[in-house]
Amino acid sequence: MASTGKIWFITGAASGFGRCLITEVLGRGDRVIATSRSLAPLAALEGTTENLRLLQLDVTDGPDIIKSKMAEAVAFFGGLDVIVNNAGANYTGILEEGGSAFLRKQFDICLFGVMDVTTAALPYLRAQKDGTVVIIGSRSAWIPEVPGIGSYASSKAAVHALAEGFSGELAHLNIRVLLVEPSAFRTPMAKADGFLDGLKRTDGIPDYDVPRNKTLGLFTNFPPPAGDPVRGMRAVVDVVKGEGVAAGKPWPTYLVLGRDAEKAILAKTETLKRHLQEWTEVVRGVEFESNL
């Protein structure tokens, strides 16, 4: 008999966080609809358990196709409980060199894909007045100053704000939103083919060679990340199910994973606090006299 636990819909499930989530969720007795742009990497899982279904899904296919795919997903087990927006891409490159076309490519996957998947799922969650939307963000949203990651960081900053927007709009419907903000983890993303192509382009603007080479050196000599994706996704499942490290704790909305993410967030908030303190007179001095 199939499990009566939660039904999870996971994008980008072929590797990394997504693949770890499949194992963790199934291990808790829940059911999974695992999606990926290509199902080939997931073929070995086909038919291994009645609690798993595979569905081809490209998050950039647009809202109409994604709505159709979501209806197909709902039919597998008769419902949905948890949507995990994990699919993503990281295109490095100098902002001026890539221009808006490069930025649109990044946003299409990391922002608009999240939007289309989430809005395709929401009618089902709203109908049952219950559910969870998980959005995988990144610590990069807090460190966009690193040359070459501006497009990725800005897409993640946008998706962070999107998650917070959904959180405010869905709370009264008993639909929770969890924004996961991970550090670097040992997943295939940073080693993916083409990851550094945008920084290695031969027609780049020479004025950017110094910061470009600094970032290339950073990534080329980057030590193995400290983040363990198995432990990271175990924490995500704990929070969604209120188990393990999350037992007895209130819903967090944010889940920061890793010391590098913690460090980046603390540094940025301290910078903003210093700005507010040093510029208090200007911050407060631009209002009408009656408000001063």
Rank of each mutant, 00 (worst) to 15 (best):
M1Y: 03
M1Q: 05
S3E: 07
K6C: 10
K6M: 15
I7D: 02
W8N: 05
A14H: 02
A14Y: 01
A14M: 10
S15G: 05
G16C: 08
G18D: 10
R19N: 07
R19T: 03
I22N: 08
T23L: 10
G29F: 11
R31Y: 00
S36W: 02
S36L: 02
R37I: 06
L39K: 07
P41T: 01
L42S: 08
A44Q: 05
A44C: 01
T49Y: 11
T49L: 03
L55S: 01
D58A: 03
D61C: 01
D64G: 02
D64Y: 00
I65G: 00
K67M: 06
M70A: 00
E72Q: 14
A73K: 10
V74N: 05
V74Y: 03
A75E: 15
A75V: 11
G79V: 03
G79S: 05
V82L: 06
V84K: 10
N85G: 14
N90W: 14
T92H: 11
G93D: 12
G93C: 11
G93K: 13
E97L: 02
F102T: 03
Q106P: 12
Q106V: 13
D108I: 11
D108F: 01
F112Q: 03
V117A: 00
P123R: 02
L125C: 08
A127P: 00
A127G: 05
K129W: 00
G131T: 13
I135S: 09
I135G: 06
S138M: 14
S138K: 09
R139K: 13
W142H: 12
W142R: 08
E145F: 10
G148E: 09
I149W: 08
G150H: 05
V159C: 14
A161K: 15
G165W: 15
S167W: 00
S167F: 04
A171E: 15
N174D: 15
N174S: 15
I175Y: 15
L179T: 11
S183R: 08
F185E: 03
T187Q: 05
T187P: 04
P188E: 06
A192I: 07
D193T: 13
G194A: 15
L196K: 15
L196I: 09
T202R: 12
G204F: 12
P206L: 14
D209A: 06
V210Q: 14
P211K: 08
R212M: 10
N213H: 14
N213L: 15
K214V: 08
K214N: 09
L216M: 13
L218D: 00
T220Y: 03
N221G: 08
F222I: 03
F222N: 06
P225D: 06
D228W: 01
R231N: 12
G232I: 04
M233L: 14
M233W: 02
V240M: 01
G242N: 09
G248C: 12
T253H: 15
G258L: 04
E262Q: 05
K263P: 00
E270N: 14
Q277R: 02
E281T: 12
V282Y: 12
R284D: 09
V286Y: 05
L292I: 07
L292K: 07
